[in-house]
Structure formats: structure tokens, C-alpha cells
Write a protein that binds this DNA or RNA. Structure first.
Lengths: 212, 212
DNA sequence: CACGACATCACCAATTATGGTGATGATTTT
DNA sequence: AAAATCATCACCATAATTGGTGATGTCGTG
């Protein structure tokens, strides 16, 4: 009895890459390949795979939402989140939604194969980095209510720098205008990205503009 | 009679760099060094230098504005704009404001020295790149009224990509969502930056959000 | 048909941005 | 006094962005 697998991934290249990997393993069988949340919710329940490999950023919604919905219908199906970033918030949301594993897209094919096997054995596949983040987070004893909320508070300096980001200034300009080193600006940027849970200048600016 | 020079530049390192270069030329004399528009407008008229080396991005305003103001008071003083970008719009505005030269910050010290000398001889120091842009612009017979205006029209594809930029998607994501190569996205980005007259993703998004 | 506009892709160089780690001093809080 | 927070700086590696050039095929229009 082979392990049946479904893929939810909008990037054709990545989906194909996984499909190739799966096709080379004799007891793996790819039975469904969806490009968005809508198709996933309509096709996967009927397919009832053993494992779903789920992207988070889909064109029409979040893979986390899709995970929650699918787990209601298929409680025995294991969902492995497959994403590019190690966003702590995403990890928790995905785990809460019922995902059993969390893998980075840059993982090797061997890692992907072993993760699927581990999943079926009841283990939780996770990169060392993600495991560390999860442990760190539990150490901090963060109440669940605080996690997804309005995000951590920025310090005055961080707000100052974020405002300059929102004027389009590059890092050098910011350093110059505040007479601090580029390294310091970068340190602040890292804190800002962390607190806003984003991964780029543009995302930070957008989040800032949203919340005025 | 040495050539007296004033510097308006907020970046301490760059200002020092120019100061060093000037100090090594026997008939150059640095008589004033300002960090912002306010100081420049209050100190330079009294100093009445032969040449002003003017940055565009100052903490409290534009060097182009400062140029216009100073040229009213000191019509015989030559202003050389000193900036990092070869923004065509800036070039014209600066020339309209009365600047006589335009140099990139990455110019060599020899280039800077010869530019100052040329300025005093009535020539217009300009990098080949900038000269080319100016000539191109005149070739296009762009009426002055059109230049600073709403910017060139974006193609449908460019608008599409700009909208994704404004959602914070990185280049890879955009390529993936439209099933085109990252190179193509970059080509579109270059066109968008050109047409919007900006130099970064964040600036493009801001300009887009401004004009809805 | 020739021409221009558009979308696509490729290759390349240089600069910037992202992310991690660690460290210091000042200030505030406990 | 000890702990926590903040702002600062440094060094590093990798990834992403920026900017330039050139090339191809398609499409519509004159």
C-alpha cells in the first residue's frame, strides 16, 4: 500500500520538482496536484491522501486556512507545510490549524522524502532552525493570545526609522540623516522586521502605512 | 587668488572626502561647509564662494531649492550638484534652478578637481552618462511642461506587476504567480522605475499608492 | 510590408538588503 | 544591585535588487 500524496503549490516549477521527487520513490504516489485553495478544498477531500504538501502563499488565500478546512474533513491526513520563510507566526498558526510538519522549500529531496516517511511514523519533521524557534518561543512562555495580535511594540528609534523607510529612503540615507552607522540601521531594520513579522523593506512599509 | 569653495552635504564622510580633495589643491580654498539647507542659506551668502558643491538630499529640504535661493543672491557663484543618482528629472530641475554642473558622487577626485576648474572656465562639467541623458531628452523634444508631470504611461503588464509590488510580493513570487521568468520581472521593474523616475521597489510602491 | 510598442528571456556587474551573532554603554525597572 | 531595555556598532554569508545591454517574437497600425 503506497503512501498517497497531494500537493498544493502555485509555483509550477516547485510543484513539478516535488512531483519528480515523489515519482522516484516506489511506495509514494502522487494523486492530486492543486494550484490554489479553491481547487484544493474541492479535489483533496475526494482524493483523501495520506499526506498533503501545502504551500502557504497561494493566489487565492492562505495554505494555513486550507489546512484547517482539510483537517476537519480528513483528520487522519497529515499536512506538511512547505514554505520559503521560517516565520514563527506562520509555524504556530499552521500547527494550530492541524499541520503536522513544517519544511523549508530549500530542503534537499532526501530531506523531503524522509520527512514524508517520518510524518507517517507519527514524527514531526522540522528543520533544526524551526525546531529551535519553536523551542525558543515556548521558553518565552508566550500566551497564545498575545502571539498573533497587533505585533510587538516598536521602540521610538524603530518608529523613526520606519517612517524614513516609508519615505523611500535607502539604508545609507537613513544612516546619514541620523548620523549613525549603516550597521546600526540594519540592526534596527532587523528588529522592525521581526516585530512586524515581515521579511522585506516593502512589506514593512506596507504594514506601517496600513496601521497609519 | 584661490578659488573659494563651499560644500553643502549632510553625509559627514562624503563632506570630509571632498574637503580632503580640496585641501590638496593649492589654489582651492574651502571656506564654508554646511550640513543642511538652513545653514547653507544663512552662511553661504556672507561667504560668497566662487563654487558651491551641493548635495540634493538634505535633512531639511532639497539642494535644488537651496541652489535656486543662493543663485538669486549670488548670481556669479557656480553651483555644482553632487548626487548619487543620475535622475533626469533632478538634472533638469537643478539646471533650471541655476546649477552649472552635475557630478556623480562616485566620481574620482581627479574628476572633481577638473570639474571645479572647468566650472570656473565657463564649461559645464557633466559625466558622459548625464550628458547623454540630457541630449536624449532634448532629442525627444519633451516640452518642459510634460517633464515633471504625471510620468510616462505604464503598460498593462507593468501595472499588473506594480500592483503585486504593492502587496509586498518579492520578485520570485511575482515571477511564479505570472509564470514568467525572474529576468522578465526584472525587465518590467526596470521599465517601471524608469517611468516613475524612482530607484527602488519601495519608492515605486509609494508612488503607486500615492496616485492610487 | 515596415515600424513601433509590448512582453518575453538572458547575461552580467555592482550595490543593497536580509539574517545571524555578538558586544558595549546608558538608562530604566525591578 | 541585578535585570531588562534601548541604541549603538561590527563582522559575516547569502540572497535580492538595481541597472545595463541585447535579442526574440507577437501584435496592431499606418
Amino acid at each position: 500500500m503506497p503512501i498517497s500524496i497531494a500537493i498544493v503549490e502555485d509555483d509550477a516549477d516547485i510543484a513539478e520538482g516535488i512531483a519528480d521527487i515523489i515519482s522516484e520513490v516506489s511506495d509514494f504516489k502522487l494523486i492530486c496536484c492543486c494550484r490554489n485553495v479553491r481547487t484544493a478544498l474541492s479535489e483533496i477531500p475526494a482524493a483523501a491522501p495520506d499526506v498533503i504538501i501545502m504551500d502557504i502563499n497561494l493566489p487565492d488565500g492562505s495554505g494555513i486556512y486550507a489546512t484547517a478546512k482539510l483537517k476537519q474533513l480528513l483528520p487522519h491526513t497529515e499536512v506538511m507545510i512547505f514554505t520559503v520563510y521560517e516565520n514563527t507566526e506562520d509555524i504556530f498558526q499552521a500547527l494550530e490549524a492541524g499541520a503536522s510538519g513544517y519544511l523549508l522549500k530549500r530542503s534537499s529531496s532526501a530531506k523531503i522524502i524522509s520527512s514524508i516517511r517520518n510524518l507517517m511514523k507519527g514524527e514531526v519533521p522540522m528543520t533544526a532552525e524551526i525546531a529551535r524557534k519553536v523551542i525558543q518561543s515556548f521558553k518565552k512562555q508566550q500566551p497564545a493570545a498575545q502571539r498573533g495580535a497587533a505585533s510587538d511594540k516598536l521602540t521610538p528609534r524603530e518608529v523613526d526609522i520606519l517612517q524614513m523607510l516609508a519615505k523611500g529612503y535607502p539604508t545609507k540615507e537613513i544612516a546619514s540623516r541620523r548620523s549613525i552607522s549603516v550597521d546600526t540601521v540594519n540592526t534596527h531594520l532587523k528588529s522592525i522586521y521581526d516585530k512586524l513579522r515581515v521579511h522585506s523593506r516593502t512589506e514593512a512599509v506596507l504594514k506601517f502605512l496600513e496601521n497609519n
